[in-house]
């Protein structure tokens, strides 16, 4: 069975720190940064590598700040070897 691995990239300047993405992530990947962005919000960031690319966070983000990537692990490793 192909294992999938995902990753999110948050557009930190677009993020308004509403935190809607935090509870919808079942893998607890997202947490709010202690730093502030240019608008003065604590932006969302990825804090571990458990992401499976389910896109839940990107679906609920009102500002469309999240881009999601996903790879099938076995295939990409095969290609790498």
């Amino acid at each position: 069975m192909a294992k999938v691995k995902g990753e999110i990239v948050v557009n930190t300047e677009r993020c308004k720190g509403c935190q809607l993405c935090v509870p919808v992530c079942k893998e607890n990947v997202i947490a709010m940064s202690e730093n502030l962005n240019g608008k003065g919000y604590h932006f969302a960031q990825s804090v571990n590598d458990e992401c499976n690319g389910c896109i839940n966070c990107a679906l609920v983000c009102p500002d469309g700040a999240i881009t999601v990537y996903r790879v099938k692990l076995n295939e990409s490793l095969k290609a790498a070897s």
């Binding site: 691995k5 990753e7 700040a65 999240i66 881009t67 999601v68 990537y69 790879v71």
Partner: peptide, 11 residues
């Protein structure tokens, strides 16, 4: 992972 060909969702 974060390569354009792996992108599945963006604004």
């Amino acid at each position: 992972i974060c390569q354009p060909e792996n992108m599945i969702y963006c604004r």
